[in-house]
Design a protein around this nucleic acid. Structure first.
Lengths: 169, 169
DNA sequence: AGCAATTATATCGTTCACGATATAATAAGG
DNA sequence: CCTTATTATATCGTGAACGATATAATTGCT
């Protein structure tokens, strides 16, 4: 690995400091582009990308609590609560208090939400095609990304022990 | 590659439809986590991650136009103009019309902006450490991501021919 | 039983991603 | 020279990421 200057970009080997050479920036850009790829497919469904993720999570298992959705999708309640309210306003989900524990809000699908299932579930295939990676390449990249920037063991985990945010192979 | 159902998630092999199995979601999650990793380092500098990217781009080459920054960073003017105004308000950059072509706004660094250079440029090294990848792994992943979800040849390119948004090895 | 600690969600404020649209300046063509 | 086309940036509105903070409900301990 090229020698890395300690905070002095004017020395040799500062190439790695260029914006375009950074993994973080590559991630940032790729994420924006991939989300953008979804728009033409999601717009007819009246969904944004994060809303689409919520719907997919509910198609897997509904009802589920706000907290559970947060764990599965890696979103905090500041993001989720307004998002779920918009989905509720759109008539795609219901939000009700769990009678077993009234701190929890349960999110379930409506008939209109279920009606989107087939079309919503056809989107990932279209995106994979648009990404122009082989399935093996996509799977490998996905697994690398899912492991990236995770808290260390012993640090507070953001994922429960069920198959959650970013599944390994 | 496993057979892919055409829009029917209830068939076999729907595993790939789970949110956690999707490359898009892995990208989305990884990008958010990596940006979050930057915060402790950027907050003392009074910068957000997109602002940090702009500063890095200016350390490479300043002054540059809003459009040029947009190309280099993959941001559109709806994102850049308010961001640059905030950096100007913070006293880190100047925004002036190019006398050669008054449609263009030139962005340059102030003394205060230049004063952040060393500290700002030390951040990527810290992030790479926090990502716990070897340099080779990071470089390979970066190059894969930089190539992801790009327009095809012949489609409108979002990058100019200079080394721009997402550099290859 | 009562109180403190913990948990779950909600709200607030700020930043930004982006499509649509508007304005201003320059380039091109007749 | 004048008009049209193109380019560069700005504004607007909406959705969302997230840290800080608040409220309500449950759990645990004495």
């Amino acid at each position: 690995m090229p020698s890395k200057p300690s905070g002095d970009p004017s020395t040799k080997n500062e190439e790695w400091l260029r914006v375009g050479r950074q993994l973080s920036f590559a991630l940032y850009g790729a994420a924006n582009r991939v989300i953008r790829l979804h728009r033409p497919f999601l717009e007819p469904l009246g969904l944004t990308y994060p809303q689409f993720l919520v719907m997919l999570a509910l198609y897997e298992d509904a009802p589920r609590s706000v907290g559970d959705l947060g764990l599965v999708l890696g979103m905090d309640t500041g993001t989720l609560t307004p998002l779920l309210k918009r989905l509720q306003t759109a008539g795609l989900v219901t939000r009700t208090r769990d009678s077993a524990d009234e701190r929890r809000v349960l999110i379930d699908l409506t008939d209109a939400g279920r009606a989107l299932r087939e079309e919503a579930c056809s989107v990932p295939g279209k995106i994979e095609t648009a990404c122009r990676l082989t399935h093996a390449q996509a799977a490998e990249l996905r697994d690398t990304l899912n492991g990236l920037a995770r808290p260390r063991k012993g640090e507070a985990e953001s994922s429960s022990d069920q198959q959650t945010e970013g599944e390994a192979s």
